[in-house]
Amino acid sequence: MLVNQFLMLGAVLFCIGVYGVIARRNAVLVLMSIELILNSVNINLLAFALRNGSADGHTFALYVIAVAAAEVGVGLAMVLLVYRNRKSIALDELAEMKG
């Protein structure tokens, strides 16, 4: 197996995730796209771990999974709160930060 086949798979997933973050309007879908990005990172970490024969990549892949779980928890709680206040989770309607 080539190193590159895994890295390129990661790159493709990453870019699909980036597209999702930019294009999606629904907050839950944006969170899913972020999950895609995080998974592509994990694939890279593990590919390099195998290539270098070290356990560092595994450790950090686990950390990424844990952080992702935390992020989803808080993100969905925020989405829920926004929904409760505005009856909508469309991100383009949330422009309170407009300068």
């Binding site: 790159a11 870019c15 980036v18 597209y19 930019i22 294009a23 999606r24 309007r25 629904n26 469309a90």
Partner: peptide, 23 residues
């Protein structure tokens, strides 16, 4: 109906550019 932004097409060039760079 409206799961995408009005400017969703902005994502395509950015994603393609990123992908090309990375590949």
């Amino acid at each position: 109906k409206e799961v995408n932004n009005k400017n969703w097409f902005m994502g395509v060039p950015i994603a393609v550019l990123l992908l090309a760079t990375m590949l």
